[in-house]
Design a binder for these strands. Structure first.
Lengths: 157, 157
DNA sequence: CCGCATCCAACGTGATACTG
DNA sequence: CAGTATCACGTTGGATGCGG
């Protein structure tokens, strides 16, 4: 989910038209034009799918404490299954966000750590967490309000 | 996926223990302690699920251009089905990220626009997009490298 | 200790058709 | 125009058991 418009069409396997302009005006004066749409859209969507799954960011944040072994991670990331930890780590490793170091001893010893770009990722995501922290009261309020008026749509004239 | 550890357990419906500390050291000196884990962990995960789905951010970015009607949105967000646009908008509306204004005329006229907190969200996510933009070359390279050595694990001693 | 393979249930999503 | 309802499908993720 990220300014896609093409990415999922490609994924879906239908056609591949690519057009349209896209401009964004954030509160920081952030402005992205069609450049952002074409260049970032597909990639942004793609990367978010990678990093936006159920466990990736959890693992990344855990690794931001420092390198960890497989079992340490499994303990730290409560609730993750062995399978999903493996799958998640493979994905992160493939994208160069996590580095895996294996020591061929018996029993096996494998360490995982964040790469420099993985470390930067932690920073950008932290700003999102900051947003959550700043606004979850409002979000809760909004939800309560929404759920309260459920069925009786507020009509504005 | 966001420092959860409890959220999904709750969602899964098993037990609900809640313990452990969580500290994060980003490259910005960002540091979150167990506070972050309990206060943000569940919420962060929860909100990311909300905002991290297939369409939400796409819709949010589209709305950052300005208010739009349902059909305008459907046109702008290429590939989205009517159903998913409805579902996505409902979710965003419930969380107070999008405001819906309905004019009871015939034919119906409904407008969607970003709330102030929705607007701020655009800013935080833009920083993530910036990360993608800064690093997708490296990510591509990492993937190529990873796929190339597939099957022949690099062993580090 | 670390990980892969298999099976299966749940959820998200899309297609289609119908309504005020 | 702006939805709702129903169905069907693919992907995700959990459980389990085996292997180096």
């Amino acid at each position: 989910m990220f300014l896609s418009g093409t990415a999922f069409i490609v994924r879906g396997g239908t056609d591949t038209r690519q057009e349209g302009t896209f401009s964004v005006h954030g509160h920081l004066g952030v402005t992205m034009q069609s450049h952002a749409y074409t260049a970032m859209g597909c990639r942004g969507r793609e990367i978010l799918d990678r990093v936006g799954d159920k466990w990736s960011m959890y693992v990344v944040f855990t690794l931001s404490e420092g390198p960890k072994r497989f079992t340490e991670l499994k303990r730290a990331v409560e609730g993750i299954s062995q399978r999903m930890l493996t799958v998640t780590l493979r994905g992160l490793e493939r994208d160069g966000i996590v580095r895996r170091t294996m020591y061929p001893v018996m029993p096996p010893h494998v360490e995982y750590e964040l790469t420099p770009i993985g470390d930067k990722l932690v920073g950008t995501v932290s700003s999102f967490l900051g947003w959550v922290e700043d606004h979850f009261d409002e979000i809760d309020a909004a939800r309560a309000a929404y759920d309260a008026r459920e069925g009786r749509p507020e009509v504005h004239v």
